[in-house]
Amino acid sequence: MPTKRVLVIDDEADIRAIVQGCLEDIAEWEVLTATSGEEGIQLAIAEQPDGILMDVSMPGMSGLEALHRLQADSKTKIIPVILLTAKALSEEQEVFTTLAIAGVITKPFDPMTLVDQVTDVFGWNS
């Protein structure tokens, strides 16, 4: 499989480190990280990653706000996004189904299966 470039946007350093470690060590992908929605948008525009994993709940600009900004920009609207969320309430899940996202991964996730989850959601199996 060719090397993928993934942008991880999460305000929690531990989550960024775990996701980055899994994707780099297991999948051997290049991982870019951002600590906020604003930083993530700038990196997405500049670096054009193959996919984005983004936390929903972040201070300042939420993941959903950042998602809308990414999708409004012609340079970033084609980049698939997976939302990372600890929120699994049914009403929030309904909101997620209305968004133009690749999928949702619920925290806490299993680091040993994260690469498989990301690969499946992005459709990178082939």
Score class of each variant (00 low, 15 high):
M112G: 11
L70V: 03
P2D: 13
Q117K: 12
G40P: 01
P80R: 01
T97Y: 09
D120E: 13
A102S: 14
L83C: 02
D116C: 01
M61A: 09
M61E: 14
L64C: 11
E91Q: 08
H68C: 08
F109D: 01
V81E: 02
F122A: 00
F109P: 00
G60S: 11
E12W: 06
T85L: 02
D10H: 05
T76A: 07
K4S: 02
D73M: 12
L84T: 01
P108F: 11
K75L: 13
F122Y: 03
G37K: 02
K4C: 01
R5E: 13
I101H: 04
E47T: 07
S36Y: 05
S74T: 14
K107Y: 07
A44F: 03
T76F: 03
T33E: 08
Q117Y: 04
D11L: 04
E92H: 12
Q93D: 01
I52K: 08
S126L: 11
D10A: 05
T33P: 00
Q20K: 15
A46C: 08
L43H: 12
E65Q: 15
M58T: 11
A72L: 10
L53I: 05
V118L: 00
L83R: 04
M1S: 15
T76D: 04
K4R: 15
L32V: 02
T113S: 14
K87H: 10
A34F: 01
V81M: 04
L70M: 09
T98N: 11
K4L: 05
T3V: 15
L83Q: 03
I52Y: 07
G63V: 05
I26E: 08
V81K: 00
L83I: 12
D14G: 10
R16P: 00
I45F: 09
S36E: 08
A100D: 15
A100P: 05
L83A: 03
W29M: 01
L53P: 04
L64S: 04
S90R: 07
V19C: 08
M61K: 15
V56I: 13
P111L: 12
A86P: 01
A27C: 05
A27S: 09
W29F: 13
E91P: 06
P49H: 06
H68P: 01
V118M: 00
V115H: 02
R5M: 08
T3F: 07
T33R: 05
P49S: 07
L7D: 02
R5H: 09
T113L: 08
K87M: 11
S57E: 14
D73E: 13
E91M: 08
D10Y: 04
E92S: 08
A34W: 01
R5A: 05
S57L: 14
E65W: 03
I41S: 06
M1T: 10
L70K: 02
I82V: 14
I78N: 14
A86L: 03
I101F: 07
V19R: 00
W124I: 02
Q48P: 02
A46L: 12
P59S: 14
